[in-house]
């Protein structure tokens, strides 16, 4: 390591102490908001409103979660969210990978042209309203298709995957071609398995972005038929009507008295965040490689 090139001076040691201290504060600032939300979600709502809740639930309860699962369409929203993540990620991986493959076959005459058409989309787009009108014209409003079809091919993923494919030897595909393998088979059987690291990184990006997106849901699925988890949370967050409905329900049921909009919101937030948090340790090693590949190519 390069630190060893430097003499360990007193000022250097003082800096180290402050640096570590700074990092600990930083880590606290990054993690505590989630922790705060977690303890609020496990604490009695009325008690939380009294304030002074810092590091641990004071009156532990599961009522907030209980209510969310019993009383709302949360389970349906979760199912749609999961379906969206799976379908969206699998399709974009397959098709963006296929596009990347086609644009890396060196003797293919349409390769530059196709690449060019896609690269332009990184710098310029028609914008919100023309896209909205197109989706409307294609009859994709209030369908599940609108979640995965408009993101089927991605210029950014194409760049990531193709920069990885460039480094594979041509002979692999060439020998399969001589053996009479067709292009789709070469992609699926030979090239794709060798690109697992970059596919893993892209899968993480895509899955996270599908899980987190909400704007296209309120834009294209205003009927609420295909509402995802994020949109449920948004409704609790901003929709005055929804909060009013919640309060009405609360009054009718004795056991719901101790809930507050704040505690219910915290519980929902945790339900939305938990899948990310739980899978985070597993996927975090993949995206490092992904973003650095992107850095080289950009």
């Amino acid at each position: 390591m390069r630190a060893s090139y430097v003499k360990n001076s007193t000022s250097g040691r003082i800096f180290d102490v402050f640096n570590v201290l700074f990092m600990v504060i930083l880590a606290f600032v990054m993690v505590y908001p989630f922790w705060n939300q977690l303890i609020v979600s496990f604490n009695d709502g009325v008690d939380t409103a009294r304030g002074g809740l810092y590091f641990w639930p004071r009156e532990f309860t599961l009522d907030n979660y209980h209510y969310m699962f019993e009383k709302s369409n949360l389970a349906k929203g979760a199912l749609i969210s999961i379906l969206r993540v799976v379908v969206g990620t699998v399709t974009t991986l397959f098709f963006s990978g296929l596009l990347a493959y086609v644009t890396t076959v060196k003797w293919f005459s349409g390769r530059r042209f196709t690449r060019f058409l896609f690269l332009i989309t990184l710098y310029f787009s028609g914008g919100l309203v023309p896209t909205y009108l197109l989706i409307n014209k294609l009859n994709l409003m209030d369908t599940f298709t609108v979640y995965w079809l408009p993101s089927l091919f991605s210029a950014y993923y194409m760049l990531l995957i193709s920069s990885y494919m460039y480094n594979l030897p041509d002979a692999l595909a060439e020998s399969a071609r001589i053996d009479g393998c067709n292009e789709l088979m070469i992609y699926m059987k030979i090239i794709a398995p060798l690109c697992i690291p970059v596919f893993a990184a892209v899968a993480v990006f895509s899955a996270v972005s599908h899980w987190n997106s909400w704007f296209d849901v309120i834009l294209y699925n205003s009927s609420g038929k295909w509402d995802t988890l994020q949109v449920y949370l948004r409704k609790i967050l901003l929709d005055v009507e929804q909060v009013g409905k919640l309060a009405d329900e609360q009054k009718q049921m004795a056991e719901m008295r101790k809930l507050t909009p704040q505690s219910i919101r915290a519980a929902t937030t945790m339900i939305v965040t938990l899948p990310i948090m739980l899978s985070y340790p597993f996927f975090q090693r993949y995206f490092m490689s992904g973003i650095t590949i992107g850095a080289v190519k950009e």
Binding site: V105, S125, G126, P130, T131, L133, L152, F153
Partner: peptide, 26 residues
């Protein structure tokens, strides 16, 4: 290159519909 063009035609059709039609929509 027929197989590659066949595969490519999906990508081209998609990019024209979902990226260039909105640009025309301006």
């Amino acid at each position: 290159e027929r197989e590659l063009w066949f595969i490519n035609s999906f990508a081209l059709a998609w990019v024209i519909i979902f990226a260039y039609v909105p640009m025309y929509g301006i």
